[in-house]
Every structure is written in C-alpha cells, then in structure tokens.
Amino acid sequence: MAEGELSDRQRAVLDAALALLVERGDKLTMTAVAREASCSKETLYKWFGDRDGLLAATVRHQASRIRGVALDEGRLDRTSLREGLERFALDWLEVITGRTSIALNRLAVGQAGTSSNDLGLIVLRNGPDGLRKRLTPLLLGAREQGLLAFDEPDEAFGTYFGLVVGDVQLRMLLGDPEPIGARDLAAHAAAAARQFLTLYSTIRPAETGGSNGRT
C-alpha cells in the first residue's frame, strides 16, 4: 500500500508502530502494535499483511516525511531545480537527524543480515532506494530540459546522496555530543545542492563569466 493511499487511521497505526519499534526494537510484535494502536490484529494483517509488511509500511511512512519535488517540466529552470534540490536535501537531513530515524537506523544496522526478518534490508529498500525513485524524475526532467548532464541517473543520485548525507548521519548514529542545529542543516542542504549543480549543471564557468558553474 502506497503512502498516499493510507487513511489517517492507518497513519496513526504506523506512528504507534514506529514508537514501539524505537522502544522495543526486534521485540516488536503485531500484538503489541494492535494493543498500542487500539485496533485488532486482524485489522493489521488485513492492512499490511505480515510483520515484514508492517515494518516496510512503517519505514515508508517515516521516509514520506521527506517531501517529494513537484515536477512541472514546463516551468523547470535553474532556479526551480536548485530550490527543489535544496528542499529535498533539507527535508532528508531533518528526518535522518530526528530521534526516531536515529533509533530506527541504529536498530537496522544492528539487525542487518542477522535473520529472515532483516530490518536493515527493509530500511534500505524503503528508505534510500525509495528516495531514489522519488528524486529520479526530477533529475531526468532536468536532463531533458538541458539543465543537467549525466549518463546514468543512479550515478547522479548516488553523488547527490553522498553530498547530502555526508558524515551527518554517521555522526548522529554514533552519538555526536554536539547536535546539528537547524541553521547548520539548512546551510548543509544549500551547499549540497550547489555542489551537485557544480558537478552536473550544463552551465560551465566559461559560459557564465567565471561563476564556477553554480546555478
């Protein structure tokens, strides 16, 4: 079930599941979620299938807090592209530095490859991989408009991923005692978008009078 198809009640259930996942980790059960969310296990199975289905929906729900970039190819220009990349980056940073995502990712790393109920793989498929699918249309649209130049969209996304996430997530996962403030996140997001455009923009220094290729 896609995030956009969820009802308010289903989102509330997933919020309850997220809270329990952070609190109880791999001891999360359908029974516990049903009790916390005041619904029946039968309803959970109907909505999400098995426990893995619930976990996947929960991770997608958390990732959905990162807003997509509306793609209107008729209005896409260098300014709207830069703004879209910045907004996506800032949303991404705000989510991954939040308490819930930090706890979820710590748990996923700890469980990675340890069982058939591999939370690490679920997070990978519904987190970074899901974000790749959401941003790729913007990258392809910008290429079609002649704003970006790249061969493989996955490679371009990988570069963007590295510039946005950098060492921020690792520092948070390892308990950096100096929290990252909102102003720092905004500056980091703007820098990531600017650096990405420096690498992939079709506007080069010679064409912009020495603007270093920045948009």
Rank of each mutant, 00 (worst) to 15 (best):
A189Q: 03
K133A: 15
R87N: 07
S211E: 13
L119A: 00
D77I: 00
W92F: 13
I180P: 01
G141P: 03
T97L: 11
E86K: 06
F88V: 07
V164D: 00
G166L: 05
D176N: 11
P177Y: 04
L121Q: 04
G166N: 04
A108I: 09
N212S: 07
L147C: 08
T198K: 01
R82W: 12
T100Y: 08
S116V: 15
R82C: 09
D91Y: 02
A192T: 02
G113L: 07
R132P: 01
T114A: 09
D167W: 04
I96P: 03
W92K: 11
Y200A: 14
F150V: 15
G175L: 11
L148R: 09
R106D: 06
P153F: 14
S211I: 02
L163H: 02
L93W: 11
G74W: 03
M172Q: 10
A108D: 00
G130K: 15
Y200S: 14
L197C: 12
L163Q: 06
R194C: 10
A112M: 08
A187C: 08
A112V: 00
G130E: 09
F88G: 05
A89T: 01
A190Q: 14
D118A: 12
L124E: 12
P128W: 09
R78E: 07
L131N: 13
E94P: 02
I122D: 03
A89F: 07
R171N: 01
A206N: 09
P205A: 02
G162M: 10
G98F: 06
D154Y: 10
A193S: 07
E178I: 06
M172C: 13
